[in-house]
Design a protein around this nucleic acid. Structure first.
Lengths: 331, 331
DNA sequence: TTGTATGCGTTATCAT
DNA sequence: ATGATAACGCATACAA
């Protein structure tokens, strides 16, 4: 069995209270005894039992990360950013995949509470009312990443999705394109999809270009979705550029175009979104609206830890800068 | 404050012992009282505190996953497979990124022990002696994924890397190639890199083809590494096929070849390894030696949980089947 | 400066 | 069938 604080106390011939004191270097403890305790700790290879400590302090120094799917291309970088700063502050992370299933989200939240995590990094586009209610009910500090809380109650870190989409489409417009398709997240609902579609609308409107529904496809975020969507669109309309709300979609679009003998970017510009790792490896390299994924994770975790550590809630959300990365999928 | 077992006991007018009994449905408890307790639990929205339970039972139902880098393309699927089965068995996972830094691996292991995880899923190519020693010293059940333990002491789940590389190269040979380059992991050391190189050697030898060092490059696993390596190789030698020990490497190779005006697969066959998600989106779609990543994660976790739950160590490692996926980067 | 004793929320042993 | 109580390993209020 691993040595406990009692063993150390015995070895150093002091009380466990004293051991605890040098462990947390709290109170003043005589240099001699402190050294004795340290020696004993060393000798026994003692390491405090954090579970016991947590039960006493009611803090575990672990936070839960609720993510739709870690094997999705978008999340690993965010999680890495989050874990890196967690590590800096001596926190650990518990990873939970939900597949955007509301029931799973709720169940995980309950379990996280049972395991006494100090806080939650929450990623989901479901933005379900019940989940937010539960978060509050459970009294779990949380920060939302990627999306924002429609009610504004829980802090978030994200980009300005409306502006980002606007900028992307404006870029396409500036290149002289007039028939710009939109492929990706749905315009309904309160999540980022709606914002991006709004940005698309605004950019077109500003240039007085009529939005044609024939060039719009709401679909999933996989390459296959982009592939199918552009093929459908091309049945009904001409297109000189495609704005996609995800890089994978854009890759699917480009692959479909290639099969049709349409050259990218010579004949059609294709723009992605996110700037996932493979955007710069794909051929052509993707021009895309970049989200700072790693930073979103790291500032999110920083916010959360701050929120956990201080009593006064700062209640401030962060909107990080997006950026258009010019590569080779647009002229 | 959340309700505790005491509150439930008071509400149901029974002792905490009885509450505990119905919670764990152990012993026989009178149906009436059982119902009273259940009602009380319901009424108070009581949920057991798992930290307290863990302190008592010495089991946390959480396992640590030590991974080089979750934002690397290879690991998310493994982790997802692992988390999925963990979830099935009511376990949670703690994610630790090490960047293959031995000190970080050791520190994380210590922390995992302090946090009383029940076991460890360990991924690393460092295969450091000290780490294995620590694992044993800490008395932490562990299973190794992707690599195997040279000393054979700790169980693992992996593919047969020598055979997989052999099969890949043999495939290239069968297509009529004679000048097959090797780009990727180092031949020295005890990890999978050495095995793969051995497979390459064996396949060539079997066809009595002399291995030319000019066509071999030991390098990292990024696209950039493949890109640079093939350019270097092409300075010194002719090549009609390239065997890469990673898909990203292969993509880098293909991109370099494209820049040189060399067509894949018409002029040069390029084969990848792993079958990461993007292999089928990249153009050309990659022909590759597939590792069953998700399965490696899921059977690894299954092994670990079994190891944790039963006392007798089964001490059996799993070698999963690899598979050559024929796509468009080879003739 | 140091020690004693209590409690964190459970499980489990021993009574009853 | 149920209750009282001791542990699990630690932090901390209170004594000394």
């Amino acid at each position: 069995m691993a040595a406990s604080i009692k063993d150390v106390a015995k070895e150093a011939k002091v009380s466990i209270a004293t051991v605890s004191r040098v462990l947390n270097n709290i109170d003043v403890v005589n240099d001699d005894t402190k050294q004795r305790v340290k020696d004993a700790i060393e000798k026994l290879g003692y390491r405090p039992n954090i579970v016991a400590r947590s039960l006493k302090t009611q803090r575990t120094r672990t936070v839960g990360i609720i993510v739709p799917d870690i094997s999705n291309q978008f999340y690993p970088e965010i999680v890495r950013g989050a874990e890196d700063v967690a590590n800096i502050y001596d926190y650990n992370v518990m990873l939970c995949n939900t597949d955007l299933d509301k029931e799973k989200e709720i169940e995980y939240l309950r379990i996280m509470k049972e395991k006494m995590v100090d806080g939650i990094i929450y990623m989901s586009s479901s933005l379900d009312e019940d989940v937010f209610k539960l978060l509050e009910e459970l009294n779990l500090p949380a920060v939302l990443i990627e999306n924002t809380d429609p009610s504004g109650k829980i802090e978030s870190v994200s980009i300005d999705n409306e502006a980002a989409a606007y900028d992307g489409v404006a870029y396409l417009l500036k290149k002289g394109n007039k028939k710009i398709a939109y492929i990706g997240s749905d315009k309904d609902g309160k999540n980022l999809g709606a914002s991006r579609y709004k940005g698309y609308e605004r950019a077109l409107k500003e240039k007085k270009i009529k939005l044609s529904e024939d060039r719009v496809a709401f679909t999933g975020s996989k390459a296959k979705d982009g592939f199918d969507a552009i093929n459908r669109i091309l049945e009904a309309a001409e297109v000189d550029a495609v704005f996609c709300t995800g890089d994978e979609i854009a890759m699917g679009v480009i692959n479909a175009l290639r099969e049709r003998g349409v050259k990218v970017p010579e004949q059609v510009d294709v723009m992605g979104f996110d700037n996932i790792y493979f955007s710069s490896i794909f051929n052509p390299k993707l021009t895309t609206v970049a989200q700072p994924m790693y930073d979103m994770g790291s500032v999110g975790m920083r916010m959360l830890i701050k929120k956990i550590s201080t009593s006064e809630p700062e209640e401030k959300s962060y909107v990080l800068a997006h950026q258009i990365i010019e590569r080779n999928s647009c002229k």
